[in-house]
Amino acid sequence: MDSTWLVLLSLALGLVVGAGFVWLLYSAASRSHRATEIVSPTVPDGVDQVLEALPTAGIVVDPSNNVVRASAGAYGLGLVWNAALSQPRLVELVDAVRRTGDPLEEDLELARSALGDATVLLTVRVARLGSRYILLLADDRTEAVRLEQVRRDFVANISHELKTPIGAISVLAEALESAPDDPEQVRHFASRLTNEAGRLARLTQDIIDLSRLQAADIVPHAERVSIDHVVTSAVDQNRVLAESRGIELATGRHSHAIVFGDENLLTTAVHNLISNAVRYSPDRTRVGIGTRLHDGIVEITVTDQGPGIPADDLDRVFERFYRVDQARSRATGGTGLGLSIVKHAVQNHGGEVRVWSKPGSGSTFTIRLPEAEHIAPEPLKPGLPKQAPVKQGERTT
Rank of each mutant, 00 (worst) to 15 (best):
V150S: 09
G101V: 12
D283P: 14
V67H: 00
S10Y: 06
L172N: 01
F189I: 05
P165E: 06
N82C: 13
G130D: 10
Q214L: 14
G334N: 09
D304V: 05
S10H: 03
D181V: 02
N66E: 04
G333D: 01
A257S: 08
Q49L: 15
A269V: 07
D206W: 00
G130F: 12
A234H: 00
L213H: 02
S281L: 02
H160V: 05
G76Q: 12
V61Y: 01
F260N: 02
T164R: 10
V259L: 02
P63N: 11
Y75D: 09
A29Y: 05
V270M: 00
H160S: 12
P88F: 09
E184M: 04
G296Q: 05
L122A: 10
L122T: 11
A83D: 15
V324Q: 12
A29N: 09
A179E: 01
V97D: 01
V80Y: 03
R112Y: 05
G393A: 09
V225M: 01
L90C: 03
E263A: 12
V219E: 06
R192A: 04
E92P: 03
Y322P: 02
D228Q: 01
R395K: 06
D304P: 05
G18Y: 14
T301M: 11
A118K: 13
Q387L: 07
G333K: 07
P377S: 08
L121N: 08
E174Y: 02
D295V: 13
T364D: 08
L110V: 14
L54W: 03
L122R: 08
E184Y: 03
N238P: 02
D62E: 05
I166E: 14
L210S: 00
L203W: 01
V60G: 03
G290S: 15
E105T: 15
L108S: 08
E394C: 08
V61D: 04
D2M: 05
E52I: 13
L93C: 10
A156K: 12
A173P: 02
R279G: 05
P41T: 06
L15Q: 14
S10D: 02
L380V: 15
H271C: 09
L90A: 04
R34M: 12
V302M: 07
S32Y: 00
Q387E: 11
A175G: 02
H221K: 11
Q214T: 02
L121I: 04
T366F: 12
V124R: 01
V47N: 07
G336A: 06
R125F: 06
D139H: 14
E161I: 04
A175D: 01
T397L: 15
H349A: 13
A345S: 15
A173Q: 13
I134S: 10
P41W: 09
Y133F: 15
